[in-house]
Structures are given as structure tokens and as C-alpha cells.
């Protein structure tokens, strides 16, 4: 396929470009004007609580949901007019597996390849290759329904790769999986990233975002609350370390330690002190006679950033 668009976008390095992108469902505004740029080879994340507008954004980028307003270019093309051409070159892993339950594992991959216009012999070879990649070769001729959640997810990801996509969209790829299945999936996604596939991932798991994403945006209420690499976001919205002091529920107000940290947060059973030096803050608290049940000094994570940006009432 030597269509002109392919040669145009192969020289551009921006695969997704959105400006003021909005999506309304009736009177409900799911996405309220977001600007996003994803470059070739990047692993880009959309983080946010449920209902933040992540999936709506993903559906618009995958050209199965027309945008309400704003600008959107995917692979340099406009989804409104070039949907099929864009879809031919992207892979989509939807939030809920929509595997073909009337077909076997192998047939799922083969038939999906046929949807992309691949020849019968090409899909045969591709299916074998992908089942190996997804560690499903021994289940090749099995029904899809009895597979475990992790296997189904791996098959969905394998299916999304059948057309060798330039861009892979993964909507909450590991939600509902056990830790083993998640780590196996992360490993596969990491390999894809190494091989140059551009990834866009939505998730509400912070560890997933930290593991996989070079750059991410935090979405909340249909808007972008923050943007940067995981490290940048932690530096900007949190402190280097966090001291957690645990008390019997309701027995502390945080008043005695308030001035020991840049910011503190009082939870029912804990006080969190955001500080650059957790050990020093702990020593200072001990010196003041504060006696927590237990204490923990840890590095700040994206979860701290996330909670700060998207909720849990904060006490500064």
C-alpha cells in the first residue's frame, strides 16, 4: 500500500496531536478541551480516576468516536475524513476484551488480520508468531471463553498487533488481573516499546504508569490537570520523600508536626509528611515527644501526585 499519506506521516514525528479536543454526550461533557502531543517511539500515559475522560479520548484517537470539537490529527490525518486509513495503521486494546467468542484463539488472530486486508497465508504466519509472543501457542486451538483473564488480555494485545501498527492504544490494559499476569503483560509491552512501537496507555494504576510511561498527563473531570514525565511530576507536585506516621484512629490532629514538612496530610489513621528528608523529620517528631504506633519513610510516588491532583481532601 503506497498511499501518499503513509509517506507524509513517516517523516512527521508527531503521531497524535490534539488541540482543544472536546467530547460531549448529550449535555454531559466527557472531555472538556485537552491539548495532547504524542511523538513517535514514545510511551504516553493518560492517568486519571474513573470518569476522567480517558476512554472517551482513546475512542476519539482510535477513530471510532467522532469528536465534538477541537482539532485532532492521528498519524497526520483527520479521523473525520480518514478514519479507515488511520485505523489500518493503529492497534486498539479496548478496556473490555471483545474477543470473538465463537472462534478459537488462532482463528481470532487470523480473522482479525483478514479485517485488515491481509492474505490468508499472511495471517496464518502472523497468528503463529503472535501466539508465541503472547505465550498462547499451547492454547492455539482452544476456545476463548474458558481462558483466564490474563490470557484473554494477552490475546487481545496480540490481536491488536496483527497489522504491525505504528501506534498501539491500550485502555486500562491490566485492570482486573493478578500480579503475575500484570507483570507478564508489562514485560510484553516493554518489548513492544523497545521495538519502536508508540504506545498510548490509560490507567489508574500508578505503578503501571511509572513502569511503562515516558510521559503522561493526569486527567480529571475531562481536563488535563498536569503533564510531564513521572519524575518531573513527582518533583513538581510532591516532595522527594514522604514520612508516614501511623496512630490509633482519631488520636492525632497533626498539629505537633505541621511545621516539620512542606505539606502534611491528615488521614483517619495516619499523618503524611511531605518532606525532602524523611529521616530528619522523623527524628524531629520523636524529639517533640510524638509517639506514633509505627512510622515509614518512603520515596514519593506518582500516587502521591495523583491524589494531590485529583482528590482526597488536602490539608496544607
Amino acid at each position: 500500500m503506497s498511499d501518499p499519506a503513509a509517506t507524509v506521516t513517516s517523516v512527521t514525528s508527531t503521531l497524535v496531536n490534539a488541540k482543544g479536543l472536546t467530547k460531549h454526550f448529550g449535555s454531559f461533557e466527557a472531555v472538556r478541551g485537552i491539548d495532547v502531543e504524542v511523538s513517535r517511539g514514545e510511551a504516553f500515559g493518560f492517568l486519571g480516576p474513573n470518569g476522567a475522560g480517558k476512554s472517551s479520548t482513546m475512542r476519539m484517537v482510535s477513530c471510532v468516536s467522532p469528536r465534538t470539537g477541537g482539532e485532532l490529527r492521528v498519524l497526520g490525518l483527520d479521523p473525520d475524513t480518514d478514519g479507515p486509513r488511520i485505523r489500518a495503521r493503529i492497534g486498539v486494546v479496548p478496556q473490555q476484551d471483545n474477543l470473538d467468542t465463537e472462534l478459537t484463539v488462532r482463528q481470532n488472530l487470523q480473522v482479525y488480520g483478514r479485517y485488515f486486508g491481509l492474505s490468508r497465508s499472511a495471517v496464518r504466519a502472523k497468528a503463529t508468531e503472535l501466539m508465541e509472543f503472547a505465550q498462547l501457542s499451547d492454547r492455539a486451538d482452544a476456545e476463548v471463553e474458558p481462558l483466564s483473564g490474563g490470557m484473554k488480555r494477552r490475546l487481545t494485545i496480540a490481536r491488536s498487533l496483527v497489522n504491525d501498527p505504528d501506534l498501539l492504544l491500550l485502555d486500562e490494559p491490566t485492570t482486573g488481573l493478578d500480579p503475575q499476569a500484570r507483570h507478564l503483560l508489562w514485560d510484553r509491552l516493554f518489548r513492544l516499546k523497545q521495538s519502536g512501537v508508540t504506545l498510548i496507555i490509560t490507567t489508574h494504576y500508578m505503578d503501571e504508569a511509572e513502569q511503562l510511561c515516558d510521559r503522561l498527563v493526569v486527567m480529571d473531570g475531562g481536563r488535563i490537570a498536569a503533564e510531564g514525565s513521572p519524575g518531573e511530576l513527582i518533583r513538581r507536585y510532591s516532595t522527594k520523600e514522604v514520612l508516614e506516621l501511623r496512630f490509633p484512629p482519631g488520636e492525632q490532629s497533626g498539629d505537633e508536626v505541621r511545621d516539620l514538612a512542606e505539606r502534611i496530610e491528615v488521614l483517619p489513621d495516619r499523618v503524611l509528611l511531605y518532606t525532602s528528608d524523611g529521616e530528619a523529620a522523623l527524628a524531629a517528631a520523636h524529639a517533640r515527644g510524638v509517639r506514633p504506633v509505627s512510622s515509614l519513610v518512603r520515596r514519593s510516588t506518582l500516587e502521591d501526585v495523583f491524589l494531590r491532583l485529583t482528590g482526597r481532601t488536602l490539608v496544607d
Partner: peptide
Amino acid sequence: YAKTYDAVLATPLG
């Protein structure tokens, strides 16, 4: 129920 067509529409097919 099977969402078969959602998967189909994510490909170039309409």
C-alpha cells in the same frame, strides 16, 4: 453482548 462489531469497527471496516 459479544461486542463482536466493536472489534470489527476498530479495523478499517465500516
